[in-house]
Design a protein around this nucleic acid. Structure first.
Lengths: 467, 467
DNA sequence: CAATTTGTCGCTCAACATTTC
DNA sequence: AGAAATGTTGAGCGACAAATT
């Protein structure tokens, strides 16, 4: 191809040669960033091949590669060998999930709230602790992993979910999100790669982005992540870890059965991945399920939040981990948080030891069951592996929409749900979904009303097929 | 120099040519790492020039540069153009400060404890909160930056220290260390460079290391960091931020006067640095001091811990920040912690609003004054800019010691202090110091005893000069 | 203060791996 | 199944900048 014919050749992106200055690769990267963030390059646009851009700008191919790598680290683009480079579907958009709570005159089905009306019990626990005479002792530094009494309660609690480890392998953290931060910083490096489900919890995605840790989506089926696909990716890419959500995957609501857990564990072992198992929803699963961590005793970090099961406001979580990680995690806790407030851990310990925690859970399960029945009055649940007590539901859409616009149109009807774009890791989505929280509405009646509005909205959009 | 004469030439490090495999640069980096971590290369050893190593291994110079860069990122070595590359003084050593608390049969003067015996007041505050009827309302998600009532209390509290900002520019965090994490992750990138005092708080150093943020030490004088030196470094290196501890620098105990604060602020403005001002010790400074943040209203993050002033166990801190950073910080808080427990913030708010916090502080200042007088019975304080109420003291040593060995020898006498190696950022220390905590001993008598033991120990070492 | 030593950095080259057709 | 398209990666080159002598 003659060098001067580029004007006639349709290139999706033509950086202005004149505005390039030294260093070239940074200059190119920032031009690209600018054009993406300012909307001149739309999500999913295919960029010209690196060779073509290099020819056009009359520089070396690898200079383009470097420029692209910078933008890829910022999650603005993603590159696939053989196919090309594409603008990321979520380039520059915030996907994180945060409770807005500004004069709620709409029905909340986006954020998953943990049925906070059981907080009366927590308030009682606080009162009973306030009367204890050892209160002062809870108020000093020391014991970054938690005081033994609290860690013992954690041990007993985790045993309920078949996670049986020594007290030395347990730490109190300031909630699951804080556990994510702790583990990503302590056990991983910027540039490391972690395998995740194609649909993953947005706040994990955003945190990984902030820390420059790359997430590699692995395909799944009705039971969740496919071991073969994981193995396949591990063979060609150097992965350091894997993040799993096996009890009730957020957002798909899928529960991994025992066989799939074993199979995945095999692959994790084979490739020496660090397993980050997020088992916040273990309380919604029958008692005979063993965590994936159980099968990889030398390379797991099991993260258990009590925000969903017991109380969200206390900001307490537990982690259990393989011996190997003890030093790094201890150091990490100290450098990130110093420690978690023992007062808060004491409240949770009290709830566990007095059996109130169990009571809260069984009541939450009742409500969850009821709300799922309401959901099924409106929408079908096809996959038998979806957790019947899930706090949220994952509904496929028959058509393609503009994600944010879709959320806004729904909102205009007085309800809020999340579109799947928030959960998707790289690449374009083949099918679109919405995640519907069942536990955020104030009561069954409100949920009923919300789902009914949603259903009419979808029917208006000719979305019969999945309903 | 003939290529074959290397055997006779004294090279401080000769990697085994045979154990090199592809990729070369990684292979070299891991050989170097191995030799440093296993003690074959001692701290401060000068490595052979990169060109010489390249010649010796018969590979390209830049391949060595790359290998060295990897080790430099891990803080195993540091390179100075013109002088050479050296093994880092703290290569592979943990310097972080953690309260060990295992059967204390020694006098604690290493960790700085915050005079925890005033926790009775905090316990009372908890009791009074437990009786409030709005307790449940504190237990949900939402309001990641803190509920307005708490942020208002924070605003009033910060005003005492002349930090006057709107409520919108304030957030509750889970303590100062957590604020560091938040800000380093939210406003900086791996590879960014931050200016710090040559002697800096070890847990800040370690956290920066974990996040691959480079710290650049700036020289100082009796008033702390020198503006000219900061300016000088900014001109040649691309710095993104600066970390300061102006009220009572940890470990030097120096208080920056107003003029120095203004001068430093000028340089910060000129080079558009992000200021991280750690003002945990502002309660030990006279009321007319303005924070450095005051002079750079568009680029500051002011971090205020209450662990030292009010209560360490509650894990609550406040940050105030320039408008510009609001979005990034909000997103960061949500992705790192979700939020800080409102229960804990409520306790601190209660202490502030009832005036108990002020009472705690004035009592702590009394004790600090008394303990500093005890110190001066044993050791001189030469620099008038050292804070007379400091919780710790910084004592120069006349001779050079092996740092860890020194700490152990002192420990053998039944006391614990920290050697300056823990605080030093890169390069070898010209003079060695020890940091002596005055507030960790249980009472004046114990402190007296500890200092007396320390003094005899030092006199035995012929350390008269500074005593 | 000029020459020398020493580390830094951006760009190029070429072999390679993966995907598509 | 083989050829073409496309992204990846390690190493080399050379100009440069800073510190030392």
């Amino acid at each position: 191809m003659p060098v001067n014919s580029f004007d006639n050749y349709p290139m999706s992106w033509k950086p202005d040669k004149k505005s390039l200055n030294s260093p070239l690769y940074l200059s190119i990267a920032s031009l690209l960033e600018y054009d993406i963030l300012n909307g001149y390059l739309k999500p999913n646009t295919k960029l010209p091949p690196q060779r073509e851009l290099a020819d056009y700008l009359d520089i070396n191919l690898s200079t383009i590669t470097r420029a692209f790598k910078i933008c890829e680290m910022k999650n603005l683009i993603y590159a696939v060998t053989g196919s090309g480079t594409f603008v990321a579907p979520n380039a520059g958009k915030a996907i994180f999930i945060v409770d807005s709570e500004t004069n709620k005159n709409f029905i909340e089905m986006s954020v998953v709230k943990p049925l906070d009306f059981f907080n009366v019990f927590v308030a009682e626990a606080i009162k009973s602790i306030a009367e204890k005479n050892y209160l002062e002792k809870l108020l000093d530094y020391g014991q970054p992993l938690g005081i033994p009494y609290h860690r013992m309660a954690a041990k007993q609690w985790l045993q309920r979910f078949n996670m049986d480890v020594n007290v030395e392998n347990i730490s109190i953290t300031s909630g699951v999100q804080n556990s994510f931060t702790l583990i990503l910083i302590s056990l991983f490096q910027p540039g490391d790669k972690i395998a995740v489900d194609s649909y993953t919890y947005p706040n994990f995605i955003e945190l990984a982005n902030m820390l420059n840790i790359q997430l590699v989506p692995i395909g799944g089926d009705v039971l969740g992540m496919l071991p073969d696909q994981l193995d396949f990716v591990c063979r060609k890419t150097n992965l350091q870890g894997i993040y799993l959500n096996p009890s009730c995957n957020n957002p798909t609501a899928v529960t991994m059965d025992i066989n799939r857990r074993k199979d995945i564990a095999e692959v994790i072992k084979r490739h020496r991945l660090i397993l980050m198992e997020d088992d916040t929803y273990s309380f919604l699963v029958p008692q005979d399920y063993l965590p994936v961590s159980h099968y990889v005793p030398e390379q797991f970090v099991y993260m258990h939040g009590i925000s969903k099961s017991i109380s969200s406001g206390m900001r307490v979580g537990f982690i259990a981990f393989a011996n190997e990680f003890t030093d790094k995690i201890t150091r990490g806790i100290f450098n990130i948080n110093v420690k978690t407030s023992a007062l808060n851990a004491e409240v949770i310990t009290e709830l566990i030891n007095t059996g109130v925690a169990d009571k809260i859970i069984s009541q939450k399960k009742e409500v969850a069951k009821e709300r799922n029945l309401i959901y099924q009055k409106f929408f079908k649940v096809d996959n038998p592996n979806e957790n019947p007590l899930s706090f949220f539901r994952w509904l496929p859409l028959a058509h393609k929409y503009h994600p944010q616009q879709f959320e806004q149109e729904v909102f205009a009807q007085g309800i809020r749900v999340y579109h799947s774009y928030r959960f998707f890791v790289r690449q374009e989505e083949p099918t679109q979904f919405i995640r519907i929280s069942l536990t955020s509405a104030l009561n069954s009646e409100e949920l009923n009303r919300g789902l009914s509005i949603l259903k009419s909205f979808l029917l208006n959009k000719n979305e019969e097929s999945n309903i």
